[in-house]
Design a protein around this nucleic acid. Sequence first.
RNA 1: GCCGGAGUAGCUCAGGGGUAGAGCGCAUCCUUGGUAAGGAUGAGGUCACGAGUUCAAUUCUCGUCUUCGGCUCCA
Length: 649
Amino acid sequence: MIKITLPDNSIKEFPKGVTGYEIADAISSRLAKEVLSVSVNGEVWDLTRPIEGDAHIKLHKWDDREGKDTFWHSSAHLMAEAIEFFYPETKFGIGPTIDTGFYYDIDLPEGRQLSEKDLEKLEKKMLELAREKNDIARREISKADAISMFSEKGDVLKLELVNELEDGTITLYSQGNFTDLCRGPHLPNTGLIKAVKLTSVAGAYWRGDEKNKMLTRVYGVSFPKQKMLNEYLEMLEEAKKRDHRKIGKEMELFTFSEAVGQGLPLWLPKGAQLRMQLEDFLKKVQRKYGYDQVITPHIGDVRLYKTSGHYQKYGKDSFQPIKTPAEGEEYLLKPMNCPHHCEIYKAKPHSYKDLPVRMAEFGTVYRYEQSGELHGLTRVRSFTQDDAHIFCRPDQLKDEFKKVIDIIFIIFKALDFKDYTAQISLRDPNTPDKYIGSPGNWDKAEQAIIEACGEKKLNTVTEVGEAAFYGPKLDFMIKDALGRSWQLGTIQVDYNLPERFNLEYIGSDDQRHRPVMIHRAPFGSMERFVAVLIEHTAGKFPLWLTPEQVVLLPISKKYNDYAKKVLNFLNNSDIRTIIDDRNEKIGKKIRDNELKRIPYLLIVGEKEAETDTISVRRQGEGDKGSMALNEFVEFIKDAVKKQLSGLYN
RNA sequence: GCCGGAGUAGCUCAGGGGUAGAGCGCAUCCUUGGUAAGGAUGAGGUCACGAGUUCAAUUCUCGUCUUCGGCUCCA
């Protein structure tokens, strides 16, 4: 007998060689039906693999990431089986799982192509194969056998993979007529896969290297229940409707012009209004937290960026310097604000008593992004960071870092982002060439972040190798209303720039000391943030933020004068109001303005004009009855105050 | 940057070797209305740009630009 420890630390005895499935079945038959894979001492295993000794285990269902991974991994194999059925000479690359679903990179036989039209056929075949409920069997194989097997098959891709593996660790998985090189784990049988959608087909280089052959990548997603697939497809539809590029156009928030250039957004009046509202909000918060606003030019001497190290790192792959005609001086469109801010810091000597110095700027920066990377407002060549740099003493670092975390949460609260994770990005000690600065400073910086997160009790994940080249960082990812993750704010600790710019302060010991810098941008960039906000809210922005809060709808032109009086009154009361005095019936005006996502529609006609009232209609909710004008102003101001209460006052 | 789609009116899109169409929007007129589409008339296009094939190109071919889906990249 062996001892099996469950996640609740209860221990059960089972015969040696018991499988994950048998353990699940012993607990409950319902669990046995739902379980997909099992972690054995921290390693995810097939349910059918015998456990030979004492072990800690955790059973994974669909709700676990590990469960989904197993499910989608097997689905990728099922897809490969279907592809092999139709195109027997196909060579298979890798078929991993991704956030939602899986893909397989394949090399189709000479002259064959796969297009979106073929996907339906493959889906049908996959479901047909799934209904056969074929067992998925694991088999260990020697390296020599694996090499001869894939040589025989002529599968050069798998051969390349096998050659890189160590003997004794190579496993094959088979189901029906299909066998694949694979580390596993997999579902016990293909019958658990009840619903499949192949979502797209695209080109991808073998092993992500553009020098290699372009393979065909087929993306898909699968589910244990048809209903789940339907929900997923509905979510995709909804995501399409919320696409910020579509809504941005509809709501006249921003546009692009070929004449201006790709990746250079033009903010239209309503978009600019929205953005300024966000900026003003953050400025107020920052004032409370002791920041000073600064303004710096859009270009800087190229030597500034040589000092900072940015030029060496990115210069040649970026926008090239601008030259002055007479002197031949070289200037760079600024890709970062920090060097300018360092020079502001240097403009006067600093005492330890002055620190921290917190310098904020909505700084527009220009970066060359590869043309294929540009995407709406989320990836552009000119964008404005809600940037700030905090110059502080080493002993202040952690506290300052924690205050920045507080600001980020104020923003999340104001905009109703409830679900976040914070990613701590550390350097990869194996690739020291990628980073500048001394290992000692890196250690201190990484430690400060880890401790600050711990003390703030943040929900964090740690990624090694994701640090910026000058320092470690903490990035915030939020989940939007559709459950999609977006990276927004960032906080970065930097010992390097102060050194490169020779920044100093005079300590209480009357000696020169080096300050530490924190780079931080809670929104990230205004462009990207607005894009995320559009998709999160589907364009229905919170009342405090939305560019047009109220629209006046006169019943007929007889009441236009009264409507205009109300319009002036509301605008003078700082309520952003417009009027729709087109020659249209009231039903038509209501419909059009409901679709424009304006929160309040005020209908005015004879009744209202006589009594100095308005008839209130809430967008998406319908008629709310009539209100006196003063009463309505108070009501709106109250609603705005409630949304922002306690955040900066 | 690389692979593959796409580019026709302000917007969404149909069409196709003989120089263009719909709906919405816009303008004018009729209607003056009470909580999600009243009616009529009209203006709007170098069919992304450049070259080639052809008697004739918006349509076919090539190149360029932009855009979309991926890949790689992201201070």
